Simulated assay, not measured.
Amino acid sequence: MATKILLPMDHTDDRSWKKALPIALEQARFYGAELHAVSVIPEIIQLPNLPANYGAGAKDHVGKAVQAILDHNSASDVPVHIEEGSVYREILKLAHKDGFDMIVIASAKGDFPNYEIGPNLARVVRNAHCTVMVVRD
């Protein structure tokens, strides 16, 4: 039984949520569980030609974009977590730290031999402490 469900979302790629969001909402209703969304901003390497505050405001921008997606899909009450770093590591850290017991994650189109299992998805499935539901495209 799930009590807390985590849905990783990429606001720039609707394949990350278009099919997974309705299924995550359905699972949350079925189990009476909390549903949370997470979006990870990849680390920006500090290059000498970039200003010190490069990327400032990124969390707010991504948070608003994810919230707009949730609002448009009748999921306004879903809390949003915005993390920075390695995508799979941040998903796994949040899931473990906050006691999520299910991750609903979308597959992505890939090339042979991975087809629909990208490196972040593979690492989440392989290393998660909890159940991972993969929603195929």
Rank of each mutant, 00 (worst) to 15 (best):
Leu6Thr: 09
Met9Trp: 11
Met9Ala: 10
Asp10Lys: 09
Thr12Phe: 03
Arg15Asp: 12
Arg15Glu: 13
Ser16Thr: 13
Lys19Met: 06
Ala20Tyr: 10
Pro22Gly: 08
Ala24Cys: 07
Leu25Asn: 12
Glu26Gln: 15
Gln27Trp: 14
Gln27Cys: 13
Ala28Leu: 05
Ala28Cys: 04
Ala28Gln: 09
Tyr31Pro: 04
Glu34Trp: 08
Glu34Lys: 15
Leu35Pro: 08
His36Asn: 08
Ala37Lys: 02
Ala37Arg: 05
Val38Phe: 02
Val40Asn: 02
Pro48Gln: 03
Pro51Gly: 01
Asn53Glu: 14
Tyr54Gly: 01
Gly55Pro: 04
Ala56Thr: 07
Gly57Thr: 00
Asp60Cys: 01
Gly63Cys: 12
Ala65Gly: 06
Ala65Cys: 06
His72Ala: 14
Ala75Asp: 05
Asp77Thr: 00
Pro79Asp: 06
Val80Tyr: 01
His81Lys: 14
Val87Ile: 15
Tyr88Ala: 07
Tyr88Met: 03
Glu90Gly: 01
Glu90Phe: 01
Ile91Ala: 03
Lys93His: 13
Leu94Ile: 11
Lys97Tyr: 08
Asp98Phe: 04
Gly99Asp: 08
Gly99Asn: 09
Phe100Glu: 07
Phe100Ala: 07
Asp101Gln: 03
Asp101Ile: 06
Met102Val: 11
Met102Phe: 08
Met102Cys: 13
Ile103His: 05
Val104Glu: 03
Val104Pro: 00
Ser107Trp: 13
Ala108Ile: 14
Ala108Cys: 12
Gly110Thr: 01
Tyr115Trp: 08
Glu116Thr: 12
Glu116Lys: 07
Ile117Glu: 12
Gly118His: 14
Leu121Lys: 06
Ala122Arg: 08
Arg123Thr: 09
Val124Ile: 15
Val125Arg: 10
Arg126Gly: 09
His129Pro: 00
